[in-house]
Nucleic acid binder design. Sequence first.
DNA 1: ATAGGCCCTGTAGTCGGTACAGGTGCAAGA
DNA 2: TCTTGCACCTGTACCGACTACAGGGCCTAT
Lengths: 140, 140
Amino acid sequence: MADHRAGRGVKRGELAKRTGCHLETIRYYESAGLMPEPERTDAGHRLYDPEQERRLRFILRARDLGFTIGELREMLCLADGQGGSCRDIHAMTSAHITGIRRKISDLRKLDATLSRISKRCARGDTPECPIIDAFYGRVS
Amino acid sequence: MADHRAGRGVKRGELAKRTGCHLETIRYYESAGLMPEPERTDAGHRLYDPEQERRLRFILRARDLGFTIGELREMLCLADGQGGSCRDIHAMTSAHITGIRRKISDLRKLDATLSRISKRCARGDTPECPIIDAFYGRVS
DNA sequence: ATAGGCCCTGTAGTCGGTACAGGTGCAAGA
DNA sequence: TCTTGCACCTGTACCGACTACAGGGCCTAT
């Protein structure tokens, strides 16, 4: 083992494998300011310590929960203790939940409309179709 | 009126105003192959006839209903009578409805998870926050 | 010696638009 | 007649959240 720092962390590929994150996404999160610039081996390879692995898992979990990169940046800033309080985090989360509920409501309306339109369709062999007509506004 | 073709249609700005579509979006739909290349005035300005206006409304309605540009291209191809049947349209719409329902289901799970996590939060003044802890995986 | 594998960098492509720079033509007001 | 302003033209860059790939470097094993 040529590099004396190699014992101190894992490289990008290993981190990706451990977290299930795409290899390139880690580099993207670094450029996006979510992940810190990690230490490097003599060959210039990134070395991640357990704290950085936890941070990546945090990011992945929050992304899974639908937070945007911008929200994450803000949240990580608060989590890092840069002047934020538990109250602030709660406010962000509440706003996010509100957004999710609005999306659900929109999609339900979509579902209802499309289902209604689709039900009129006879699934015939002709090109004439009541769904198309509905999109053209020729029927309600 | 210098242009003898001007009576035959409306220009891009007018079409945008009529349909509520963003001016540039019309050009984008043309480049995306959804809208046909319209006639031009002598000055090179696009001129849309009523049929093209109907087509744009079709596109906007379908986009509103969550269809992607790719799906729309396919649907318009069928609507134009290029070998598709009513049955095909119905199949596409059904697939789309299925997708919407899956999205709704995903978002409901998100809502439940976030609401559960958020409820634990005391909204305190300290940086310590159970929401952050949950994201870090330190609690369920 | 060389082949393979991992890593590095920078850049381009995806989707569905939006925005803007720089240019043209046309009509109305001073 | 000049000029001001508007609508339109083209091409290109930007957004978010990645993903993919070209063209290298370095290390290990055979």
